[in-house]
């Protein structure tokens, strides 16, 4: 039992399970899946489908956080990638031409990689703290997205582009397959190559990693680029979903939801060990929460309150001081200096 409880997926899965259980009691048909016109429909499918962009962003964010970093600019990259692809397509003669759509997707993804590279270079080359370095793109990024679309909300009529976000394959939404591919790629890249080991090593102890001969700068830049790429793909999904690009609102709050998903998934904000599967569960939990609140009939905006408490709860559980605080209550005397010094020693 203890071993099960210590597994990194125990808490995220329990929370997700509890949410699903609540839904089961609240509306028994929550889990029903219908077949209609060759497509599967149902709440569970919706959760996977609507949760897809968040999962993508969160997967990239997991790796960044594992290196002791953070990427605040993912929401902006989502908007930029959507704007870039929509702009490219809208300029074309035949919006539905396959080559045009592919070019648009390619351009958007390359741009996302470049933005990731920018973040990575600021962190490694200029030695700026990640939270500050990525803040720059977070602020400027939305402006860039609007610059690309010239401030308009671009609407497309391109079924081929719309397929990315709304199409279905083998009765399931196509977006689920995209997520599956990216998730599998991330897992393979980190578990089958040595990248995962290096990421965890650099995130846990950068100094010792350097002395063991790891080129941490390259690892860190790669991770920010991957995170940018993930956000770019998420941007394509979101813009294709509504066949339009909105530089102002696309991907709004995604950075925060993604960080939340990562933290719920058991990856510590202090870097080190990371859990892609935990992140997946975390992102699904956030999406389920939204769906649940929607199906219960509460205003979706109130999700924020619940999220606030989840963030706090997870961080307090992860905080060593919080756990110790309970024990410390029984201690009769304590020396504040002693605490401090051992912390800094």
């Amino acid at each position: 039992m203890n071993r099960i409880m210590k597994h990194h997926l125990f808490w995220p899965l329990t929370m997700l399970g509890a949410l699903l259980l609540f839904n089961l009691f609240h509306s028994p048909d929550f889990f029903s899946i219908k077949m209609q016109g060759g497509h599967l429909y149902g709440n569970m499918i919706d959760i996977l489908n609507f949760g897809a962009p968040l999962i993508l962003v969160a997967v990239g964010m997991t790796l960044v956080i594992a290196t002791k970093g953070i990427d605040l600019s993912v929401g902006s990259i989502v908007a930029i990638a959507g704007a870039m692809s929509c702009m490219t397509i809208s300029k074309g003669e035949d919006q539905n031409s396959l080559s045009l759509v592919l070019m648009a997707v390619g351009l958007a993804l390359v741009l996302s990689l470049v933005l990731g590279l920018w973040n990575g270079l600021l962190v490694t080359g200029a030695g700026i703290q990640p939270i500050i370095a990525t803040l720059i793109l977070m602020v400027a990024g939305r402006g860039i997205a609007q610059l690309i679309t010239d401030g308009q909300i671009i609407t497309l009529s391109s079924p081929k582009y719309a397929y990315i976000g709304t199409g279905s394959l083998a009765t399931l939404p196509f977006s689920i397959f995209i997520v599956a591919v990216v998730f599998a790629a991330a897992s393979l890249l980190t578990r089958k190559s040595a990248l995962g080991l290096f990421i965890e090593s650099v995130g846990t102890n950068p100094q010792a990693s350097r002395l063991a001969g790891i080129r941490s700068n390259i690892v860190i830049v790669a991770v920010y680029m991957f995170c940018g790429l993930c956000a770019g793909i998420a941007g394509l999904l979101l813009s294709s979903n509504v066949s339009s690009a909105d530089g102002n609102n696309a991907g709004l709050w995604y950075e925060l939801d993604a960080i939340l998903a990562v933290v719920i998934g058991g990856t510590s904000l202090n870097g080190g060990r990371f859990y892609l599967s935990g992140t997946l569960v975390g992102a699904l939990m956030i999406q389920t929460l939204s769906t649940t609140i929607y199906s219960v009939g509460i205003a979706p905006e109130i999700t924020l309150v619940v999220k606030a408490f989840v963030v706090l709860a997870v961080c307090l559980i992860q905080s060593e001081s919080f756990r110790k605080a309970v024990i410390r209550r029984w201690k009769t005397r304590h020396y504040p200096g002693e605490k401090e010094v051992t912390r800094h020693a």
Binding site: S193, A194, L195, L197, F198, E200, S201, T204, N205, Q207, A208, S209, L211, A212, G213, I214, R215, G272, R273
Partner: peptide, 25 residues
């Protein structure tokens, strides 16, 4: 501070330097 990587296992800590010379793939 300069030797072990706390969060990694004994196995991972042992192979770390060798893997670092071999690169990612």
């Amino acid at each position: 501070i300069e030797g072990i990587i706390d969060d990694l296992s004994v196995r991972e800590n042992i192979i770390l330097a060798l893997q670092a010379t071999r690169g990612w793939f």
